[in-house]
Simulated assay, not measured.
Amino acid sequence: MRSRTFAGTPVGAVGLGCMGMSWAYTTSERDDDVSIALIREALDLGVTFLDTAQVYGDGHNEALVGRALAGGHRERAVLATKTGLLVDRDAPGGMRRDARPEFVKSSAEESLRRLDTDVIDLYYLHRVDPGVPIAETWGAMADLVAEGKVRHLGLSEVTVAQAEDLHALHPVAAIQSELSLWTRDAMGAPGGSAGAFSGDVSAGEGPGDVVGWCAANGAAFVPFSPLGRGFLTGTVTSADFERTDFRGANPRFQEEALKANLRIVDVVKEVAARHGATPAQVAIAWTLAQGAHVLPIPGTKKPRYLRENAGAAALDLTEADLAQLDGIPAPVGSRY
């Protein structure tokens, strides 16, 4: 696989998001043994940038990744996890934010234990906690770097202003946000879903050009959901989801919105046909085309999709392709 660089270390241009192996989507398909084998196959394919988080399955996903990397595989991976969100079944969405310094430090210890590693390569603040001064959270995370427990720090779903302020205190190595053909908030697109970012963003505003900020400041930009939660693959054609699949309540996946949004997939399929590629590969290649610092992390539980996603690293979209993709219709429905 073609490589890109994260913090001076070569990694596969396409990474792997591990969340869906434990949480959020079709939980009836969860199979830990299959997922462990898939993670190891990913490493063999050159997919070395792995992403997990404390909140994914309430620790299950970190433990799963830790098992997959046991037996000499850990040194083959650049391993990212996150703090600041935890499971709370009484909270909206079943999660709450907690970025208190003491929580950040204790959760890092728990993550190290579950991942069965001595050091976390990239430690993200999963979401800004409006109840805690963000500089205090960042200071606690920087302490973990000084203690040798974490190598690099990252942020998730933040604004340019927040990134700028924190970068002055300790380097921001990566920012993770949703980015795909139907979600471009992090590129400064108007009409973004501000509520997903932080209380510092007024309704109707977005985070600013976070992708551009990362390029200008030597940070990686890590798109999650580059496949639009599966929609951009062209395989989701109805709003029939398992009860535990959060897409069943997602505005873009409601029946009427989903039908309208199939216009987006039609364009992706047209570009894919010209290249003998799949819609998924086109969607991932579009994120890669946004800059050499961009490291998408599509997720999957199935080996055939892992191989398909990895193949996107070899797909070079033309200027005409990119112009056509940039002109796709705006999606119907907010992203959350």
Results as ranks from 00 to 15, higher is better:
199 G>T: 06
193 S>Q: 06
194 A>I: 09
211 V>M: 04
212 G>R: 11
193 S>F: 15
211 V>Q: 10
195 G>S: 14
200 D>K: 08
196 A>M: 15
217 N>M: 12
204 G>I: 02
213 W>A: 05
202 S>M: 09
215 A>L: 02
198 S>L: 06
215 A>E: 11
209 D>V: 03
199 G>N: 08
195 G>D: 06
196 A>K: 15
221 F>D: 14
196 A>S: 10
199 G>Y: 05
212 G>N: 04
209 D>Y: 05
221 F>T: 13
198 S>F: 15
208 G>L: 00
217 N>W: 08
203 A>H: 07
220 A>D: 08
195 G>K: 09
205 E>R: 12
191 G>R: 10
196 A>H: 10
196 A>P: 02
196 A>Q: 13
201 V>M: 14
207 P>M: 01
199 G>S: 11
200 D>C: 11
205 E>G: 06
200 D>I: 02
219 A>W: 04
204 G>M: 01
204 G>H: 01
210 V>M: 08
220 A>I: 07
195 G>A: 14
199 G>D: 14
191 G>T: 03
197 F>N: 03
196 A>G: 14
191 G>D: 06
196 A>E: 13
221 F>Y: 15
209 D>L: 03
203 A>Q: 06
214 C>Q: 02
202 S>P: 01
210 V>H: 11
220 A>G: 14
194 A>F: 13
203 A>I: 04
194 A>K: 10
201 V>E: 09
218 G>M: 00
202 S>T: 12
210 V>N: 04
191 G>E: 06
194 A>Y: 14
220 A>V: 06
211 V>A: 09
210 V>G: 07
195 G>H: 12
209 D>A: 01
208 G>T: 00
199 G>A: 13
197 F>W: 15
206 G>Y: 05
210 V>I: 12
218 G>D: 01
195 G>W: 12
206 G>T: 07
219 A>N: 02
195 G>M: 12
203 A>Y: 07
198 S>E: 10
204 G>N: 11
221 F>N: 14
208 G>M: 01
215 A>W: 12
196 A>I: 13
192 G>R: 08
212 G>I: 03
203 A>V: 11
220 A>M: 04
195 G>I: 09
192 G>K: 10
209 D>N: 07
220 A>C: 11
194 A>N: 11
220 A>L: 14
213 W>H: 03
201 V>K: 05
192 G>Y: 13
209 D>E: 00
192 G>C: 08
219 A>F: 09
194 A>P: 08
199 G>E: 05
201 V>Y: 08
210 V>Q: 03
202 S>G: 15
201 V>F: 04
201 V>T: 03
192 G>N: 13
202 S>I: 00
207 P>N: 02
212 G>Y: 06
194 A>D: 11
191 G>V: 08
217 N>V: 01
213 W>G: 03
204 G>V: 01
215 A>H: 10
214 C>S: 05
214 C>N: 11
218 G>A: 07
210 V>T: 08
218 G>P: 06
207 P>T: 05
211 V>I: 04
199 G>M: 03
211 V>L: 15
218 G>W: 04
220 A>K: 07
206 G>P: 02
207 P>C: 06
206 G>M: 01
202 S>D: 09
210 V>Y: 03
196 A>W: 15
217 N>Q: 05
207 P>S: 02
206 G>Q: 00
193 S>I: 07
207 P>D: 05
214 C>T: 07
197 F>K: 01
202 S>L: 05
217 N>A: 15
214 C>Y: 10
196 A>R: 14
197 F>H: 09
219 A>K: 01
197 F>G: 03
199 G>P: 07
